[in-house]
């Protein structure tokens, strides 16, 4: 038989539990991150990609690999560009040969295993390029799964990997819903885009932002109301990837389409 004291105790616990889980599944709200001034850190790095401007030249990937010393011919990269082609009969193709390190120089879609698909100009309904990189999530699942505290979120929001601490278990690589992590072929530790941490902390743009001739990539500080990137995120229509995962990604996209995952 439950007594009054236990009943009240359980009720309070129950309500606390329910409110907690509701806040956990709350969807992303850039306004909230923007408004959160209680935080000690005055910087929260965010990224903005305009897919209309991207032409698939791949200069960003080339610059990223060289700046961050990712072996040039290894088939791993911190950032890459995807091509999406949707045809008039409803078919959908996507590819990223070598992560678009050498750009897209042919209309043939790389289907993998040496197969290519030619698509006629008049059959194309929509076709565009989408650059991808680490989303520097507000709730990074890769960090939660690290058993040794080797990957973590710095106070300015960037998720970093401690190469000295990483034991190479690969949990974070499995845990990232965006597939941005891989093993570094030389250091044999988990590797990922870190918004060129050595550059942004010196006041420079990331290597990919600097290399992009078309302004398709931009980096900004969402806690600075005068930052042009913040202004666009606050006032224009922007999308994020895999919102349903609750990871609160901080790479915002202009011109996303439902095919882009």
């Amino acid at each position: 038989m439950i007594n009054r004291r236990d009943f009240l105790k359980n009720t309070v616990k129950g309500i606390a539990g329910i409110t907690l889980s509701l806040s956990a599944i709350e969807i992303i709200d850039p306004q909230k991150i923007f408004a959160d001034k209680t935080d000690k850190s005055k910087v929260r790095w965010v990224f903005l990609v305009d897919t209309y401007k991207c032409v698939g030249c791949g200069f960003c990937v080339k610059a990223c690999k060289q700046e961050n010393e990712i072996p040039y011919d290894a088939n791993v990269t911190r950032t890459w560009v995807e091509r999406y082609v949707i045809t008039k009969d409803g078919k959908f193709f996507a590819d990223t040969p070598k992560g678009a390190r050498d750009g897209f120089i042919t209309g043939k879609i790389d289907l993998g295993q040496g197969k290519f698909q030619d698509i006629k100009k008049e059959d194309i309904d929509k076709a565009f390029f989408v650059p991808k990189l680490c989303n520097q999530c507000e709730n990074p699942p890769c960090v939660q799964v690290c058993p040794v505290g080797a990957t973590y979120q710095a106070p300015d929001g960037v998720v970093l990997v401690d190469r000295k601490w990483c034991i190479g278990c690969g949990y974070c690589i499995m845990g990232c819903p965006y597939g941005v992590r891989f093993f570094h072929p030389v250091y044999h530790t988990a590797e990922k885009c870190n918004f060129c941490y050595h550059r942004i902390t010196k006041g420079l743009k990331t290597a990919c932002v600097q290399a992009c001739p078309f302004g398709a990539r931009q980096i900004g500080n969402i806690k600075d109301p005068n930052d042009p990137v913040t202004k666009i995120i606050m006032t224009e229509r922007v999308g994020i990837l895999k919102e349903e995962y609750g990871t609160k990604p901080q790479v915002y996209y202009i011109g996303l389409d439902k095919e882009v995952k």
Partner: peptide, 21 residues
């Protein structure tokens, strides 16, 4: 503990990487 369990010195290590571009 969930997101901020780490070696603080590593953040500084990353800022010391040489700029190439």
């Amino acid at each position: 503990y969930m997101y901020g369990w780490y070696r603080e010195g590593n953040t500084e290590d990353w800022t010391k990487v040489a700029v190439k571009y």
